[in-house]
Amino acid sequence: MKENTKAFLFDLNGTIIDDMHYHAEAWHQILTKDLGADLTWDEVKVQMYGKNREVLNRIFGEDHFSDEKADKLSVKKEKYYQEAYKPHLKLINGLHSFLAEAAAHNVKMAIASAAIADNIDFIVDNLDIRQYFDALVSADDVENSKPDPETFLIAAEKLQFDPADCIVFEDAPKGVEAAQNAGMKCIVITTAHPKEDFEQYDNVIGYIKDYEDALTKNFFQKHTEAPQK
């Protein structure tokens, strides 16, 4: 491996699994049907970032729900999501092989996500991929959500690598911005956003539609040449 490719940090939703539609369904249920918010499907989708409490605060105001009520709504939303998505649970195409190859090349890997810890556990255990990850960073581990770099910086610290030595895999502009703020390069998977949504960021080193893409399939061939003496 080249010395500047030492660790991979993966977002979860839309990057490891293509599940954003199910999160949107769960939020639409909570916000419009349970709480009576006058929001369209598209309006719900654009609010789905950050911690669950932050979503509720953006829509209803910071003082609308007590901490206890917000926590109950968060648990209810994740229950909706997990029940709806579990029958469809699968890795994005090509990812299992990519993880196995990265592990074979001694690449340290972490999940660094705004998802709650329970959702990360739900994914890695049901898909039997926990063994590939040396660290899991969730919404429960940070004070500030993406685009703040905290999530990725904590993951790099847990892996004991400098931020510049990490490559982030992300599907969302705010995640790419968080990686840029952390001083990390990023590969974008276009499950949820087209390339045009990332043009303002200078840390993107490539785009993939899934992990069968030539960029990821040939990644280790391109990064395992012996160093020049």
Rank of each mutant, 00 (worst) to 15 (best):
K69V: 03
K69R: 09
K69L: 04
K69W: 01
K69Q: 09
A70T: 15
A70N: 15
A70K: 14
A70G: 15
A70Y: 14
D71E: 14
D71V: 08
D71F: 13
D71C: 05
D71W: 10
K72H: 12
K72A: 15
K72T: 14
K72S: 15
L73D: 06
L73K: 05
L73R: 04
L73S: 07
L73P: 01
L73C: 07
S74P: 07
S74M: 11
S74V: 11
V75Y: 13
V75I: 14
V75M: 12
V75D: 14
K76T: 12
K76R: 08
K77S: 01
K77A: 01
K77T: 03
K77C: 03
K77R: 02
K77D: 00
E78K: 02
E78D: 11
Y80C: 13
Y80M: 10
Y81G: 09
Q82S: 09
Q82Y: 04
Q82F: 04
E83D: 04
E83S: 02
E83H: 01
A84V: 01
A84N: 07
A84S: 07
A84W: 10
A84C: 03
Y85N: 01
Y85A: 00
K86V: 00
K86W: 00
P87F: 11
P87C: 08
P87Q: 05
P87D: 07
P87L: 10
H88T: 03
L89A: 11
L89M: 14
L89E: 07
K90W: 04
K90C: 08
K90S: 12
K90R: 12
K90A: 13
L91D: 02
I92S: 06
I92V: 08
N93A: 15
N93R: 07
G94W: 07
G94H: 00
L95D: 09
L95N: 08
L95S: 05
L95Q: 08
L95G: 04
L95P: 01
H96I: 02
H96A: 11
H96L: 11
S97T: 11
S97R: 13
F98R: 01
F98W: 05
F98S: 03
L99A: 13
L99I: 12
L99F: 15
L99R: 13
L99P: 13
A100N: 07
A100G: 06
A100V: 02
E101V: 00
E101F: 00
E101S: 11
A102Y: 09
A102L: 06
